[in-house]
Write a protein that binds this DNA or RNA. Structure first.
Lengths: 158, 158
DNA sequence: CTTGATGCAAATATTTTGCAGAGTC
DNA sequence: GACTCTGCAAAATATTTGCATCAAG
């Protein structure tokens, strides 16, 4: 089977067509950023990352694409309290696997921790089951963040 | 002991002076709102709530007061994903006690749940201890939210 | 009377939208 | 060729700031 028809990175764009969106260059490039980056990116981060190579892609398009990817569950939108939304590949697509966030209030640094995954998974499952029964919610997601001061910021007494 | 000198609601304003802020009418009124309200209020909500009775208090002052109260740990700032910050009395001052949030993605409704408190507290404590050791963070807080669709929105297929 | 608090207007910052032209299928 | 996607400019929204004035201590 020719390489370009095989399974691999190329297939990631299939999401767009499958849900009735057209597969444009901008949308491919933006999705690639997520597959090639482990950080939590804001809309502007993404715009700046691709702007040198693709000056034709505007910030507006970045926002519109992020909206689509978020609604399709391909990326997750986070708020770390710095006034701008940040995005990363959804955990089911992400090599990093399921993790939560530890945010430094001093410098804004975010650590993806996946320690005690079993305990976390168990906790989430138990609570989700309980809440969905008790309040008859169809639970679609959760957010667990811890925040505090990283060693560097603690020293500086920020 | 005369009532007005006894322990009670009057003492809540002591926070301001104790931390070097002046106790102004605006600051008293805004803090009262939190003691008299169980909802999660945005800056504008608060402004509108007090505006009829105190038309002299501006939205700017509301923002500035919220900043102070938040930094003193008297109120907690939350983001429920609707683009504006929302505030409520900190859990140690709040009759409602420690609770987390269940947010409906359809209509934005927020349920304060305090079911399974013991399990939650235990979970938080374990993770906090682990993270503070492993990453040498001084943990100051956490955020646990579940989101999904409430029964009404599920029906409407929003 | 000194210093901090406030209102107003204007600035910022992020995200959204209208519309005409370009690109995908 | 139909209909979607895009860039640009402008709007919308939330929050912050400069500054002259006012008020608490």
């Amino acid at each position: 089977m020719p390489y370009h028809l095989g399974f691999g990175p190329l297939h990631r764009y299939g999401f767009y067509k499958r849900y009735g969106f057209r597969t444009t260059q901008a949308r491919q490039v933006i999705l690639d950023v997520f597959y090639n980056c482990k950080e939590h990116l804001s809309a502007e981060d993404i715009y700046l990352k691709i702007h040198k190579k693709y000056p034709g892609i505007s910030l507006t398009t970045v926002y519109r694409t992020l909206e689509i990817l978020n609604r399709l569950g391909i990326i997750e939108k986070h708020d770390f309290g710095d006034g701008r939304a940040r995005y990363e590949l959804a955990h089911h697509l992400c090599k990093k696997g399921h993790h939560h966030h530890l945010v430094c209030s001093g410098c804004g640094k975010v650590i993806d921790y996946d320690d005690l995954v079993d305990k976390e998974t168990d906790f989430i499952k138990t609570i989700e089951e309980h809440l969905s029964k008790r309040y008859r919610f169809k639970i679609t997601g959760h957010l667990v963040q811890f925040f505090g001061m990283c060693p560097e910021c603690s020293k500086k007494g920020k």
